[in-house]
Design a protein around this nucleic acid. Structure first.
Length: 271
DNA sequence: ATGCGGACCTGTTAGC
DNA sequence: TGCTAACAGGTCCGCA
């Protein structure tokens, strides 16, 4: 479910409900996430006040007095704010309860998500320290991609989906960005010109910003805290559109597999 | 060092 | 209708 726009939509949605609020209790119904939830997390979080809610890549960072809660939604995770008690469903693994009665509920059918606590700077945490730049920051640009890709034979799609290259770009937005930039997903990263990377970097930013404005992409079940889906799905030009007409040249879009992921492209517009 | 495949997990859908 | 296989928004790990 979540790539950068969905995680950011989640952050913006839940922030006003939990900022400044104090945690009274953690309810862990199933600790078996990607990594087991620490047994003592409840004791640690009790009495902590949320000072700031940030995002790094697809990680949400809840800063508190004594440390920071690092949260990842994995492939199928989501967060919801509940103002009154709602019977937990099968995949509602964790509740964070606040003094004002709010409940932040973590749901994750596939359990690829995770929760970590750290007392140091979360950016130094093992999971975060090797992450590449934020795609919407100024230090991410065509020149950066060009320099970093020299000598690499990896398919450009895999290259931009690697969080050490740049964070936040998952399968949907990798496909969409490459289409926007007219680059074939299988092209070797090291064989792409500076000019084409300039265009790709710009298109990545544009695609992500536009998705953000639409509240992210809902394929099956992503909803923001208000229960509304993301509307970027209607803007997808290639993702999940194999066989349909290219919106630019009207020729049929193709699907291949790259690095175990479905890849969609227009063989005419993308070279 | 780079790059690839496998692994983790459950739910949904396509195909026989 | 029912069973099975393939696939799904992520990313870490180990091996070549």
């Amino acid at each position: 479910m979540p790539e950068l726009p969905e995680v950011e939509t989640t952050r913006i949605g839940i922030a006003p409900h939990i900022l400044g609020e104090t945690i009274t209790r953690l309810v862990v119904r199933d600790a078996r996430l990607r990594w087991p939830v620490a047994r003592n997390l409840g004791r640690i979080l009790r009495g902590q006040q949320i000072r700031r809610l940030a995002r790094r890549g697809k990680y949400l960072l809840a800063f508190m007095q004594d440390g920071c809660l690092i949260l990842h939604l994995g492939m199928s995770g989501s967060l919801r704010v509940l103002q009154q008690a709602v019977e937990p469903g099968k995949h509602d693994h964790i509740d964070i309860l606040f003094a004002n009665g709010t409940c932040l509920r973590f749901t994750d059918p596939r359990r690829f998500g995770s929760l970590h606590w750290t007392r140091q700077d979360p950016l130094r945490h093992e999971l975060l320290r090797y992450l590449g730049p934020e795609p919407l920051d100024n230090d991410f640009d065509g020149e950066y991609l060009y320099q970093r890709s020299r000598g690499r034979k990896q398919a450009v799609k895999n290259f931009i989906m690697d969080s050490r290259t740049v964070v936040g770009i998952g399968n949907i937005y990798a496909n969409e960005s490459l289409f926007a930039a007219g680059i074939h997903p299988q092209r070797h990263a090291g064989h792409i010109s500076r000019a084409r990377y300039e265009r790709l970097a710009r298109d990545i930013k544009q695609v992500l910003r536009q998705a953000l404005r639409k509240g992210g992409t809902t394929l099956r079940d992503f909803v923001n805290v208000d229960g509304r889906p993301g509307y970027f799905r209607h803007e997808l030009k290639v993702y999940d559109r194999a066989g349909q007409d290219c919106s630019v040249c009207a020729r049929p879009l193709r699907q291949i597999r790259l690095g175990q992921r479905s890849s969609f492209y227009c063989p005419h517009c993308q070279r």
